[in-house]
Design a protein around this nucleic acid. Structure first.
Lengths: 343, 343
DNA sequence: TTGTAGGCGTTATCAT
DNA sequence: ATGATAACGCCTACAA
């Protein structure tokens, strides 16, 4: 009972040829229904399962999509679920690899998946990645590739992402509308497009409201609660401290919140706070934190759909770009002015 | 530049035989260093990458581990990271599939991975799964398989899990020690071993403290915040309401907390609450929720290590069982009696 | 040290 | 309707 049955075994036992069995399996048109039945019965009995490696080797496609993500936090695991959903539907198996935000791991993952002859890639790049040669190798081979979420201009490929600039803008504009004047931003690593875009949105909002940007209020730190905590402590220590903080992730917002509480400041009265991602946790903490929502699950689905389109179209789709609109969820941490009730 | 270079291409260009190239690649002992150099140079130039399918087909092993998990929530994604870590180290690629808590998806995933000739499986079973035939097929083929986290007696295999019974016990005992008398439990689906074990621990603790179990206080509900919310509302509505609740997950604890707050009850004074998993969120909410910790990352690593052992050992390891000890983190939600300060 | 040939499990082409 | 055969990319006896 050890090694799997092959069509060869079936052919031998049935005294017919391999090719007939092969045809019967995929119930091709021109095969006697009796032999077909016999083949089916025996393959059932022997618990036959096709060998995907052989198949892949032969047809040069594996019906597998390689997905590379920097981690599996709340947002990304939702996206992966979305990808999975659509891919499965379309008959693809998904192979998920985590780069762990490491450039090296990303390269290894890419190579392995390439060697495994995946039919294509859906990628969100690691925060450490500054060179894109490993991904360009994919493109040189003409293998379909879609990037999602963390998109970068250095990598020209069909992409699905949030309108991060707009996300940064609406978050900041909201704070301005609430009357906050000195708004700080906790941004991510400098090379990360997602971070820069959100910051651009922040800067545009300031500009619109004719507020000069103050470099003291712009902090780059790791995507991480602890860093955000310390960064916020520093922010709160400067002479003219900010009266609001926009963080480009909820994790960071949590860190900021803790630092604010520790300092004894009240939200939204003393200081406003807006995060990004709208993870469930933000409505569980006190005060509830306002946050920019992207619907991660939908974004994942969109990425997979775009991928499948890319597969089927012959033309170059490298500038297909799908941009989802963010939505701000306003909560206690930033709502200084209560909405008027009109009647 | 389209299709990948093969050793055949290299052989042809170098006017040597395929086997020589093959040997040179894996720098076998008996190959002229000049030809070796030439091969290396050319393979570099052609950007040669071995074809894993061909390799796998030939050697009947793919250096790939199939991992099947019910979802990618906080706990499981930490475990997957642990698995990934160890597997990568050992030269394995990990293929993660989510069953989405669906029996059907689990079967499909298993079949696909089997067809892909993964070298083995590391599995956490879906909550919906009551029949295990699909997994037994793996074992019939003598393919190594380790189950982790969600382990069940219906599936005999090497396993790594938390001592869930003990987890339930220490949580409940803690509540009893704090003076709570009517302790309810929000358990998971009835067929889920992880849930039953935690409940056993709960029952044992009651027994130890000579408290009769009260079926009104034992609720089975989905692993889910909303269900827990409603279940708790019902619990709080009965005439002799519980004065403490133990939930077998933190998600459920959150749901319970919300219901408790809504009812206007105070933790820990009016009612005690203990969760399970010790996810970061429990120390962010107010009050902070006590929770039983399992170190998910370590558990994942242990699972992968056990898997690799299983691979290398010839003997049957099906009753290898590794059980990690849980640890209770006591927080505001259950600490009625403040610890005495001794001097 | 290098080459030849057969085979891994499957499909596809061409016969029959 | 069915069979024989070559091929996919690689490895491995065995032979030279």
């Amino acid at each position: 009972m050890d090694k799997p049955a092959t069509i060869k075994d079936i052919a031998r036992k049935l005294n017919i040829s391999i090719s007939t069995v092969s045809r019967a399996m995929r119930n091709a048109a021109d095969v006697n229904s009796d032999t077909k039945k016999a083949v089916m019965a025996l393959s059932e009995e022997l618990n036959y399962q096709p060998n995907r490696l052989a198949l892949g080797l032969k047809q040069k496609q594996t019906h597998t999509i390689g997905v590379i993500v920097p981690n599996l936090d709340y947002v990304l695991s939702m996206m992966v679920r979305g990808i999975d959903e659509v891919a499965l539907e379309a008959g693809y198996t998904v192979m998920v690899c985590q780069s762990n935000e490491s450039f090296g791991r990303e390269i290894v993952n890419t190579r392995r998946l390439l060697e495994s002859l995946v039919d294509g890639f859906i990628i969100s790049v690691s925060s450490e990645t500054k060179s894109f040669e490993h991904f360009k190798k994919i493109q040189e081979r003409n293998i379909p590739m879609v990037v999602f979420d963390r998109v970068t201009p250095d990598l020209v490929a069909p992409s699905v992402r949030l309108d991060n600039e707009n996300g940064g803008f609406i978050a900041t504009e909201h704070l301005l509308e609430q009357g906050y004047k000195r708004i700080a931003i906790l941004a991510g690593p400098k090379n990360l497009g997602i971070s820069n875009s959100r910051m651009d949105g922040y800067l545009n909002a300031l500009k619109k409201y004719k507020i000069k940007k103050d470099d003291d209020l712009i902090i780059h730190c790791d995507f991480n609660q602890d860093y955000a905590f310390f960064a916020t402590q520093e922010l709160l220590a400067i002479k003219k401290r900010p009266d609001a903080i926009f963080t480009i992730s909820d994790r960071m917002a949590i860190g900021a919140m803790l630092a604010i509480k520790k300092k004894g400041l009240k939200m939204p009265e003393d200081i406003g706070l807006v995060g990004f991602n709208n993870e469930p946790v933000v409505s569980l903490v006190t005060p509830q934190i306002s946050s920019v929502d992207m619907s991660s699950f939908e974004l994942g689905k969109a990425a997979a759909k775009l991928f499948i389109e890319t597969m089927h179209h012959q033309e170059d789709m490298s500038n297909a770009e799908q941009i989802l609109k963010p939505k701000l969820f306003i909560r206690e941490s930033s709502q200084k002015i209560l909405p008027k009730i009109t009647r």
